[in-house]
Amino acid sequence: MGFKLLSKLLVYLTASIMAIASPLAFSVDSSGEYPTVSEIPVGEVRLYQIADGVWSHIATQSFDGAVYPSNGLIVRDGDELLLIDTAWGAKNTAALLAEIEKQIGLPVTRAVSTHFHDDRVGGVDVLRAAGVATYASPSTRRLAEVEGNEIPTHSLEGLSSSGDAVRFGPVELFYPGAAHSTDNLIVYVPSASVLYGGCAIYELSRTSAGNVADADLAEWPTSIERIQQHYPEAQFVIPGHGLPGGLDLLKHTTNVVKAHTNRSVVE
Rank of each mutant, 00 (worst) to 15 (best):
M1E: 05
G2T: 07
F3H: 07
K4S: 10
L5N: 15
L5V: 15
L6M: 13
L6R: 09
L6D: 13
S7M: 10
S7R: 09
K8P: 05
L10Y: 15
L10Q: 15
V11T: 12
L13H: 13
L13R: 13
S16Q: 15
I17H: 07
M18D: 13
A19Q: 15
A19H: 06
A19Y: 15
I20N: 13
A21L: 12
A21V: 14
A21T: 14
A21Y: 14
A21E: 14
S22C: 10
S22P: 13
P23F: 09
P23A: 12
L24M: 15
L24G: 10
L24V: 13
A25E: 14
A25V: 11
F26W: 15
F26P: 11
F26Y: 11
V28L: 09
V28H: 14
V28R: 09
D29I: 11
D29K: 10
S31K: 10
G32A: 11
Y34P: 09
Y34M: 11
P35R: 07
P35G: 07
V37N: 13
V37P: 15
S38D: 12
S38K: 08
S38G: 11
E39K: 12
I40D: 06
I40W: 08
P41E: 12
P41S: 11
G43A: 06
G43Q: 05
E44V: 10
V45I: 09
V45T: 06
R46I: 10
Y48I: 15
Y48P: 05
Q49N: 12
Q49F: 09
I50G: 02
I50D: 02
A51S: 10
D52Y: 09
G53F: 07
S56D: 10
S56F: 11
H57S: 04
A59S: 15
T60Y: 07
Q61H: 09
Q61D: 05
Q61T: 08
Q61V: 08
S62R: 12
F63G: 09
F63D: 09
G65S: 10
A66N: 14
V67D: 15
V67S: 15
Y68W: 04
P69M: 15
P69G: 15
P69A: 15
S70I: 01
S70L: 03
S70V: 03
S70C: 03
N71W: 00
N71C: 03
N71S: 06
G72Y: 03
G72H: 03
G72D: 05
L73P: 05
I74L: 09
I74P: 01
I74D: 02
V75W: 02
V75D: 04
V75N: 02
D77M: 05
D77N: 07
D77F: 06
G78F: 07
L82F: 06
L82S: 01
L83M: 09
L83K: 00
L83R: 01
L83V: 08
I84V: 10
I84E: 00
I84M: 06
D85I: 00
T86K: 01
A87T: 03
A87D: 00
G89F: 00
G89K: 01
G89E: 00
A90T: 13
A90M: 09
K91F: 07
K91N: 15
T93P: 00
T93S: 04
A94V: 14
A94R: 14
A94M: 15
A94D: 11
A95K: 11
L96H: 02
L97Q: 00
L97W: 00
E99R: 12
E99S: 12
I100S: 03
I100G: 00
K102A: 12
K102C: 06
K102F: 05
K102G: 10
I104Q: 00
I104L: 07
P107Q: 12
P107A: 10
P107W: 03
V108H: 01
V108E: 01
T109L: 08
A111P: 02
A111V: 05
V112A: 06
T114G: 00
T114C: 00
H115P: 03
F116D: 05
H117A: 00
D118M: 07
D118K: 07
D119H: 02
D119M: 01
D119S: 01
R120A: 06
V121F: 03
V121A: 04
V121T: 07
G122L: 06
G122K: 09
G123E: 04
G123V: 03
V124P: 03
D125S: 10
D125V: 06
V126R: 06
V126Y: 12
V126E: 08
L127R: 01
R128D: 12
R128T: 13
R128L: 09
A129K: 10
A130N: 15
A130D: 06
G131C: 05
G131Q: 07
G131I: 06
V132D: 02
V132G: 01
A133R: 13
A136W: 04
P138G: 09
P138A: 09
P138L: 09
S139A: 14
T140D: 04
T140L: 04
R141I: 12
R142A: 14
L143S: 06
L143Q: 09
L143W: 07
A144I: 06
V146L: 14
E147F: 13
G148F: 06
N149F: 11
N149K: 14
N149S: 11
E150F: 02
E150M: 04
I151Q: 06
I151L: 09
I151D: 03
T153W: 09
T153K: 10
S155W: 08
S155Q: 14
L156I: 10
L156F: 06
E157L: 11
G158C: 05
L159Q: 01
L159V: 10
L159W: 03
S161L: 12
S162C: 07
G163L: 04
D164G: 08
D164A: 12
D164E: 10
A165G: 11
V166C: 05
R167Y: 10
R167I: 13
F168G: 02
F168C: 05
G169Q: 03
E172A: 03
L173D: 01
L173W: 01
L173A: 03
Y175D: 02
Y175G: 00
Y175R: 01
Y175C: 04
P176D: 03
G177Y: 02
G177N: 02
A178Q: 09
H180I: 01
S181Q: 04
S181E: 03
S181L: 02
T182I: 11
T182G: 11
N184E: 01
N184W: 01
N184S: 03
N184M: 01
L185V: 10
L185K: 02
V187A: 13
Y188M: 03
Y188S: 02
V189K: 00
V189D: 03
V189R: 01
V189M: 03
P190K: 09
S191M: 11
S191W: 15
A192K: 09
A192F: 07
A192Y: 07
S193R: 15
V194C: 01
V194E: 01
L195E: 00
L195P: 05
L195C: 01
L195N: 00
Y196G: 02
G197N: 05
C199Y: 06
C199G: 03
C199F: 02
C199D: 03
A200L: 12
E203A: 08
L204C: 05
L204Q: 10
S205P: 08
S205M: 08
S205A: 09
S205N: 10
A209G: 07
G210F: 03
N211A: 15
V212I: 10
V212F: 09
A213N: 12
A213S: 12
A213G: 11
A213R: 11
D214C: 06
A215L: 05
A215T: 07
D216F: 05
L217Q: 06
A218S: 12
A218Y: 14
E219R: 07
W220C: 05
T222S: 13
T222A: 12
S223P: 07
R226H: 07
R226M: 08
I227E: 02
H230A: 14
E233N: 13
A234D: 00
A234T: 08
Q235Y: 07
Q235M: 08
Q235W: 08
F236A: 10
V237K: 01
I238P: 03
I238D: 01
I238T: 05
H241F: 02
H241Y: 05
G242I: 02
P244C: 02
P244E: 02
P244N: 02
G245C: 04
G245P: 03
G245I: 01
L247Y: 15
L247R: 15
L249S: 05
L249F: 06
L249T: 01
L249G: 02
L250H: 04
L250R: 02
L250E: 02
K251G: 13
H252W: 05
T253I: 06
T254L: 14
T254D: 11
T254S: 14
N255A: 12
V256F: 06
V257N: 03
V257Q: 03
K258A: 11
A259Y: 08
A259N: 09
T261I: 12
N262E: 13
R263A: 14
R263I: 12
S264Q: 12
V265Y: 11
V265F: 09
E267P: 12
E267F: 08
E267R: 11
